[in-house]
């Protein structure tokens, strides 16, 4: 009954893991207790994704998994075999910023910048979900991304601007 293509990974053993990372296949060898967040940061070198709490309480680690915004700190890496992961490093099209990135700069939607990767990926998904039609809707939809610098009004303005332009 056990699946043939995905054998069990014993404790402290590593297993190969391939996922589609920012549009490219990437293969790693990881232990079961590695989270997607730690895989990205410590093994894939994609440090743009941040660890703010590691417990699902801040949103700084938000990435897109198959296009859906997801907390990478609450996900085991091995669970995401074959998934398409988009991090902040994969958002811009070459040298050209994604519209949300550009709007964040223009509207000063960050200060220290530490929550910004998660805010931007979350915002991209919120717009794609069609839940950015009013400031109140944006505020609620973005409430899973804490910003201790308090850039919230500017974050709302940036997203509203992209939504309005789109």
């Amino acid at each position: 009954m056990r699946t043939t293509e995905r054998p069990a990974v014993p404790p402290r053993s590593s297993a190969p893991l391939t996922l589609r990372l920012n549009g490219r296949d990437a293969t790693f060898v990881v232990e079961p207790n590695v989270t997607l967040l730690d895989l990205l940061r410590e093994r894939a070198g994609l440090t743009g994704t941040k660890k703010g709490c590691d417990r699902g309480q801040c949103g700084a680690c938000t990435v897109l998994v198959n296009g859906r915004r997801t907390l990478s700190c609450l996900a085991l890496a091995l669970v995401h075999a074959g998934d398409e992961i988009t991090t902040i490093e994969g958002l811009a099209n070459g040298g050209e910023l994604h519209a949300v990135q550009a709007a964040f700069v223009e509207h000063d939607a960050f200060q220290c910048g530490f929550c910004t990767s998660g805010q931007i990926l979350s915002a991209v998904a919120v717009i794609a979900e069609g839940r950015a039609h009013s400031d109140a809707e944006i505020s609620e939809a973005m409430s899973g991304n804490l910003c201790r610098c308090g850039a919230y009004p500017n974050i709302v303005a940036a997203i509203a601007a992209v939504q309005g332009a789109g």
């Binding site: 056990r2 069990a8 990974v9 079961p32 207790n33």
Partner: peptide
């Protein structure tokens, strides 16, 4: 540490 295994059916 723990063992990780993927199930391909609910019975499995």
């Amino acid at each position: 540490a723990f063992e990780y295994v993927v199930a391909d059916s609910s019975a499995a």
